[in-house]
Simulated scan of single mutants.
Amino acid sequence: MIKVDNVSKKYGSFTALHSIDLEIGNGEFIAVLGPSGCGKTTLLKLLAGFMGPTEGTISMDDTVLASTKRVLPPEKRNIGMVFQSFALWPHMTVAEHVKLPLSYHPNKVKEGKKEMQERINEVLKLVGLAALAERFPSELSGGQKQRVALARAIAPLPNLLLMDEPLSALDVELRMEMRKEIQKLHRETKASIVFVTHDQGEALAIADKIVVMNQGRIEQIAPPEVLYTRPETEFVATFVGKCNLVKGQWRDDQFVPTIVSNTIWPDLGVADSFKESGIYPVRPEQFQLMPAQSEGLQGIISFVQYQGHEIHYTVEVDEETWTIHESVFAPRFHTGDFVGISLKNAPVQKGALISS
């Protein structure tokens, strides 16, 4: 168990992290998600031991790793690290990259050369590089280099594996393949993983739990499905996937959009912060389009994008612009069409105006 307790980090007058609290369970895969400058890399550096906190403590299994008075250096922590730039040594072979941490890591193999070679072979086989053991980095592709970086990090069996945007230097198809590889390594090694990324699709795809950060603070911590379907703040709703923030009034767990007063939406799990702001968050796929009717929500299609399995519509509704995703098997609409809009999975309730 890794525990981050009330940790803040300041650089002069600038506060990069504000009172961060986080627990990482044994074998848990955590993605830290947020825009550039939100503090996610600072948090990773604190976990790695590259610097100490201005306030608070970081502990692993009841042992304090960092406080305002003392910071245990990286080489004395039971961690592995995978960098965005791979950080491979050009003069060392693939096998030598794996051998190095086995010699110097706190979890280093204490047996003889035979046992160490067996571990090297085991790790290279795990990441699919057994046939490339004697090659140098200059002879490897981008994906192979990333596998070397992963192999080096997991070789000494660390309790915590830190990854700083490890897939950002790869092309789209290779990123998809490496996501599977990282998930496989997680199952095999059973290490706790902290995976820093700004790619919300990546975080949703591979993590057990996602930490969403913004301006040095944690906005929400939740499993991917909960984070997507029940965001707690406007930032989470709009940063993790697309979201339409519909304005209106909340009364007795019912919502009336400002745009049209004869339509009522029920509470489908909307967070209190949205209710206090008079907002109903709606994901693009939660809306349904239909031919224009004489009452209810109306809009006009301003833009259409074909996406293979979906059609993405931009719809002008009064003075607002909404994004709506429909299946390719649903009725098709075109730019300039007038359409009716309803909320899926919500009973149709009309005519019950909520007064202010």
Results as ranks from 00 to 15, higher is better:
A151D: 04
R251A: 15
F329S: 13
A31Q: 04
A271H: 13
K10P: 00
E28R: 04
L65F: 14
M60W: 12
P106C: 11
V64Q: 07
V348T: 14
K10A: 09
M92F: 07
V270R: 05
W250M: 12
V282I: 14
L44E: 01
K40S: 02
F274D: 07
M1I: 09
G52F: 04
Q220N: 04
Q254K: 15
V212I: 08
D199C: 10
H18P: 00
E181T: 12
Q305C: 08
V196M: 04
L185Y: 03
I206W: 02
Q84R: 08
M178N: 08
Q254R: 14
T57C: 04
E118S: 11
E115T: 08
Q349Y: 15
V212N: 00
A352T: 12
Q286H: 11
G39Q: 00
I193P: 00
E219G: 01
A207P: 01
V98G: 06
M290T: 04
T233P: 06
M176D: 07
E320P: 01
S261I: 02
V109W: 01
Y306W: 13
T335S: 08
E310K: 11
A352G: 09
G25W: 09
F303S: 10
L157D: 11
L167D: 03
L72V: 14
E295Y: 12
L22R: 02
I279R: 05
L162W: 05
P223H: 10
E177H: 12
P257A: 08
R119I: 15
K108P: 03
G351C: 12
T68C: 09
Q183T: 08
E23A: 11
L353E: 15
A95G: 08
L22N: 02
G128P: 07
T197G: 06
V226R: 15
D272A: 12
F239W: 05
D199A: 11
E23T: 14
V123W: 08
S277K: 15
T68R: 10
L47P: 01
V246S: 05
L22E: 03
N6E: 12
G216N: 06
S342A: 11
Q254L: 14
Q117I: 05
F83T: 09
T41R: 03
F338P: 00
P166K: 02
R217M: 11
Q146R: 07
L88W: 04
L33E: 03
D208R: 02
F287M: 09
I218S: 03
L100W: 14
E219S: 02
S342W: 03
R230E: 03
S13K: 15
L65P: 02
M163H: 04
F255I: 07
L140M: 12
V64G: 03
A95I: 05
K180N: 09
G351Q: 11
D253T: 11
A16Q: 08
Y280L: 08
Q293D: 11
